[in-house]
């Protein structure tokens, strides 16, 4: 079995994986990082979005072995200790989550959006979320949360 070494949330890790093991499986099953979720099998829902070397990707659509030497950030690595990341804080403040299942991917996507476009319009936010499906919130408060995080200048 191949082994893969990478940095996850600032920690160097290695694990034995099958060639077919997906990054999300490595995270959830080998590293116990169950915050990243799997909501579909067609690469559409975005519940599995993490950052690999600073960009958002769907961890259900990349092999673990492809991540050799990369730097992965998951939802578990976003807060600084007990202090929520401003995007997490904005989601809490504006009720941008209900059941919480899409939330990790949604937050990771939103963080990447503001990195690329710090002051997005409402339309740009909605378009950016094309690959993140939420069944609970109707997106209204998610959009509001991202707007608020953006306005807070982060």
């Amino acid at each position: 079995m191949p082994s893969v070494s990478l940095t996850v949330n600032g920690r160097k890790v290695s694990a034995e994986v099958e060639q077919r093991t997906l990054l999300v499986q490595l995270l959830r099953e080998k590293l116990g990082l169950t915050g990243t979720h799997v909501g579909c099998d067609t690469s559409q829902c975005g519940a599995c979005v993490v950052h690999v070397d600073g960009t958002s990707i769907k961890s259900c659509t990349i092999l673990a072995v492809q991540c050799e030497g990369t730097n992965v950030l998951t939802i578990e690595g976003l807060a600084q200790g007990d202090k929520l990341h401003p995007m997490q804080e904005a989601f809490r403040e504006h009720h941008g989550l209900q059941c919480g299942f899409c939330t990790p991917g949604m937050v990771m996507s939103a963080v990447d959006l503001l990195k690329n476009n710090p002051k997005p319009s409402e339309r740009e936010i909605r378009e950016w979320l094309e690959g993140n499906i939420c069944r609970c919130t109707g997106y209204h408060n998610i959009v509001k949360a991202i707007q608020a995080a953006s306005q807070a200048g982060r």
Binding site: R28, R92, V107
Partner: peptide, 18 residues
């Protein structure tokens, strides 16, 4: 504000598959 949120926002939810 919801007391549920902190765990979900930090990836500490505990769903069946977890």
């Amino acid at each position: 504000k919801r007391r549920e949120d902190a765990k979900f926002l930090t990836g500490r939810g505990n769903y069946t598959d977890d």
